[in-house]
């Protein structure tokens, strides 16, 4: 698996200029605006490189050769999640650091607000990856994007239908949400963590099963 990680980091290195430009633009905007919290969008953008490495692997039928190497299909999938995790976390930490530094330099910026955004971004990064990786593995780069859009569209439609149905049945959703029992912050964090782990495990299981059935 280490060999695959090395491969992905080497592939990423080949695109370093692209990432430097993104980071430079983000820093530039942050420096001239009052709010540095949008820097936290960086992990979202940069962690998408995991999906990019999947496209690289698929390009020119590269997967066929890859699976003749001492790599199992499950091992390949696990490596992708590890790579996503490593990239996501390191970019996340780096951007928090950057946001804090910029926040300190700029009196107007609100550091605590940045931290709250940072905490919210990490689960978002994980969920996005957990959804995108199986899609990318199943449908490939081009079709994967279309399939994902389709899935999001379907989700949107379902939620609209649900809301409409609730209205028709005269269920007051806003009232329902407002009357949810208040839960402590730590309980919410724990719940979020558990949900994230479940999402990740389900995503991993789906990805492994997708790869096991693939033919090259």
């Amino acid at each position: 698996m280490k060999g695959l990680l090395v491969k992905d980091f080497r592939l990423m290195k080949g695109q370093k200029n692209f990432y430097f430009i993104i980071i430079a633009i983000a820093i530039g905007i942050a420096a001239i605006s009052d709010d540095s919290s949008f820097l936290l969008g960086l992990p979202l953008v940069l962690s998408l490189f995991t999906l990019n490495t999947i496209s690289y692997d698929e390009f020119d039928n590269g997967n066929a050769f890859l699976f003749t190497l001492p790599v199992s299909r499950a091992g390949y999938v696990i490596e992708k999640y590890c790579f996503a995790f490593l990239i996501g976390c390191s970019v996340w930490i780096f951007t928090i650091f950057l946001a804090l530094v910029l926040g300190l330099l700029n009196v107007k910026a609100d550091v605590s607000e940045t931290m709250v955004t940072a905490m919210a971004v990490l689960p978002a990064v994980i969920v996005i990856q957990a959804i995108m990786i199986p899609f990318q593995l199943k449908f490939g780069a081009e079709k994967g994007r279309i399939a994902l859009l389709g899935a999001l569209g379907a989700l949107f439609m379902i939620s609209i239908v649900l809301v409409k149905a609730a209205k028709m049945l005269k269920i007051d959703t806003a009232n329902f949400v407002n009357h949810l029992p208040m839960i402590s912050k730590s309980a919410v964090t724990a719940m979020v963590l558990v949900i994230l782990v479940i999402i990740l495990l389900l995503s991993l299981k789906a990805s492994i099963s997708i790869m096991k059935h693939k033919e090259f």
């Binding site: 491969k7 080497r10 592939l11 080949g14 690289y56 692997d57 390009f59 020119d60 039928n61 590269g62 997967n63 066929a64 050769f65 003749t68 190497l69 090259f216």
Partner: peptide, 13 residues
């Protein structure tokens, strides 16, 4: 050891 005609390491390496 394997060499395939239509596949190999990524061309970007």
């Amino acid at each position: 050891g394997v060499a395939l005609s239509d596949s190999g390491f990524s061309g970007y390496l």
